[in-house]
Every structure is written in structure tokens, then in C-alpha cells.
């Protein structure tokens, strides 16, 4: 009797799980499909490689693509270094338990702050106080800050996942703690560290609120020449196309083209992360 009931329970659970997962896949596919359907007709070589023209009713979105890539690069490089170092400290080098706990608490708290608040903070610190003005550097640093909690956590977990037995073996051979970190822990954890970094890249690319006050230009159809200039960016350009176009009917399709471009770029990073993880995992078998 209990056996039968268990079977039914299992069947029900299986059914529920598959309905929910298929539902999720359908919704996701629907969103992507819808945007692809609306945006595909707009996207072409010229759309991706030419600047905007005539307000923003004609031409392409190239300056926004370039700007987004610049800001994202700054964010990921700065955030990557600081996040990896902090993660390494927390996982491998922190000897003061209290300090470690305090940092971990801070990281958790920072992760819960809405992104628009980061934007305001970036405005106050980087744009105004440090005098960077609205610039790629200010926006990139703001986004670096935003992604730090994620990057720190990810790096910390990656380093902690390296078997303690290997670290001990290295120390046992006369390696210092730093040598052990650089020669054993870091290379073995690298796949996970990089995966987190590439995933963060995909996320940073789509962030809108933090760039609003720190870097994004409303209409600046030229390519940035230094880190100290403002620039157009894909998410903000998308927002502008929809809300404040002179003639929304004209800019509406371009908005979908922009959205599709953004989506494809994010997706590219996510897939890269998956691929990286797979390849490097094979190499190190961890």
C-alpha cells in the first residue's frame, strides 16, 4: 500500500517538475523568439557598423555597441582583479576570523543593494568627488562595484573548492603559501573564476541604472576616443528609443534591433562561460 502511494507521489512530482520546466523553457523561448522576430528585420551589417543618423531615426547603433563594450571591459577588468584578490584573501589568506566574517557580511549586504543606488553612489564618488565626470571610466568603475559581490563570492567559492589535500601536498614540498596559491590553487580554480567573470560580463552589459548618471550619453553618434569621455550604450539607447524618440513609430523597430543585439551579446558571453567551464574542467578534472 505505501509503495503504491509512493509511486503516485513520485509520478505527481515528476509531472509537476516537467510541466514547470517546460513552462519556463517556453516562456524563455517565447521572449527570445518574439524579440528575434521583431528585431531580425532591422539587424544587418549597416545597423551594426554605422552610427545613428537623423536624430536616431536612421542609421545603426555602432557607437552604442562600442561604448557598451568599453564600459563593460573596464568593469570586468577592474572588478575581476579586485574580486579575485578579495576572494583569494577570504578563502586562502584570511587569518583573522572576525575580519573575515565582517567582510563576508559586507559582501552579502552589498549584493542586496538595488542597482540604481550604485548609480547614485557612482555619481557621487567617481563622477563628482573624484572628478572623472560622466565618463567610461566612471561608469565602468560603478559597474565594477556593482558586480564585486558576485565576483568575490564566486572567486572565494572557486578557491575553496580546490581540494585541501592538494594545497597541503604543495606546502609539504616546501612551497610557501603564496607559491601554493599561484601554482596550485589559482590554476585549478581558474575555470570557475573565469566562468564567473564571463557570466558577470553578460550581466554588466545589460545593466541600465548604474550607467544613467555616470557615463551614458543621450545622443552622441561618435566613437569614444578615451576613457574620460561619455558614450552611448546599448541598454540606455534602447530606453531612449522607446521613451523619447521624436517619432516612436519610426524608432520602435530599431528598439527591437537594439534589444536583439544586446540579447545576442549577453547570450554569447553566457555560452562562452559554459564552454570555458566545460573545456577547462576537462583539462583539470575538478
Amino acid at each position: 500500500m505505501p509503495k503504491v502511494r509512493k509511486r503516485w507521489g513520485e509520478l505527481l512530482a515528476t509531472l509537476l517538475v516537467s510541466v514547470v520546466s517546460w513552462g519556463a523553457i517556453l516562456v524563455l523561448g517565447g521572449v527570445v523568439g518574439f524579440i528575434a522576430y521583431k528585431g531580425a528585420s532591422v539587424i544587418g551589417w549597416s545597423f551594426l557598423t554605422e552610427p545613428m543618423r537623423e536624430g536616431m531615426r536612421k542609421g545603426g547603433i555602432a557607437p552604442a555597441i562600442v561604448g557598451s563594450l568599453w564600459v563593460t571591459a573596464v568593469a570586468v577588468i577592474v572588478g575581476g582583479f579586485i574580486g579575485t584578490a578579495a576572494g583569494a584573501y577570504l578563502s586562502e589568506f584570511a587569518t583573522n576570523r572576525r575580519l573575515k566574517r565582517a567582510i563576508e557580511f559586507l559582501v552579502t549586504t552589498l549584493a542586496g543593494i538595488p542597482s540604481v543606488v550604485y548609480g547614485l553612489f557612482g555619481l557621487a564618488l567617481f563622477v563628482v568627488a573624484l572628478g572623472l565626470g560622466a565618463s567610461i571610466l566612471a561608469g565602468g568603475l560603478t559597474l565594477a562595484l556593482l558586480s564585486l559581490p558576485l565576483l568575490i563570492r564566486n572567486a572565494q567559492e572557486a578557491f575553496s573548492a580546490v581540494p585541501a589535500s592538494l594545497k597541503e601536498a604543495s606546502l609539504g614540498l616546501g612551497a610557501s603559501e603564496m607559491q601554493t596559491f599561484l601554482r596550485i590553487t589559482l590554476p585549478i580554480a581558474l575555470p570557475r573564476v573565469l566562468t564567473g567573470l564571463v557570466l558577470a560580463t553578460g550581466r554588466v552589459l545589460g545593466e541600465t541604472a548604474p550607467i544613467l548618471f555616470t557615463v551614458a550619453a543621450y545622443y552622441l553618434p561618435t566613437y569614444p576616443r578615451s576613457l574620460f569621455e561619455p558614450t552611448m550604450l546599448l541598454p540606455y539607447h534602447l530606453y531612449v528609443l522607446i521613451t523619447s524618440g521624436v517619432n516612436v513609430k519610426e524608432t520602435y523597430p530599431m528598439a527591437f534591433g537594439t534589444a536583439l543585439t544586446l540579447l545576442m551579446m549577453s547570450l554569447a558571453f553566457t555560452l562562452t562561460a559554459a564552454y570555458l567551464r566545460f573545456r577547462l574542467k576537462l583539462k583539470y578534472r575538478v
Binding site: S165, L166, S170, G172, L173, Y284, R285, V286
Partner: peptide
Amino acid sequence: PVHLRRRVGMVFQKPTPFP
């Protein structure tokens, strides 16, 4: 201790080859 461990080698319970 780092110098000491060059004079004193250690082998652990489970094999610990590096990848």
C-alpha cells in the same frame, strides 16, 4: 617551516597528484 619542509618530505594517505 618552508625550509624545514625541504628537509622533511611527506606522503599522504590518499595519493595527491597535481593535475
